[in-house]
């Protein structure tokens, strides 16, 4: 069971603002889903390696070289707030 204060805690971690109604619903929904995935506990996974990625490739390397992106204007246009060609962010301190 995920109670309302846990929902609020997770929402803060996930940076999602929620209203009271959403918190209620999520507390119910998440509890239901987590209860259902409990099924996985039936499986004996002792000594089993986890699979993060199915094809087993790892560490694809390439030369570390700077490339030019040809549509910088297209990216700048997407900034919610632009100043002097930079994306203006909120104060982080």
């Amino acid at each position: 069971m995920i109670n309302k204060s846990e929902v609020q805690h997770i929402a803060t971690l996930a940076r999602i603002g929620l209203d009271e109604k959403e918190i209620d619903k999520l507390s119910k929904d998440l509890s239901g889903i987590l209860n259902w995935v409990e099924k996985l506990k039936e499986v004996n996974v002792d000594g089993v390696e986890p699979t993060a990625h199915i094809t087993g490739v790892n560490n694809i390397s390439r030369e570390d070289r700077v490339g030019d992106f040809e549509n910088k204007e297209g990216i700048k246009k997407l900034f919610p707030e632009e100043k002097d060609g930079f994306d203006k962010v909120k104060s982080v301190l």
Binding site: I2, I10, I16, V37, V43, V45
Partner: peptide
């Protein structure tokens, strides 16, 4: 939102092994 919340919960400290790691082992 529901899925982000579910994932954030399953990856949060104290639950990672019980959920994410176990699911990855079942995947194997």
């Amino acid at each position: 939102k529901r899925r982000i919340m579910l994932g954030t919960y399953a990856l949060s400290s104290g639950y990672y092994e019980a959920y994410y790691l176990r699911a990855q082992k079942v995947r194997t």
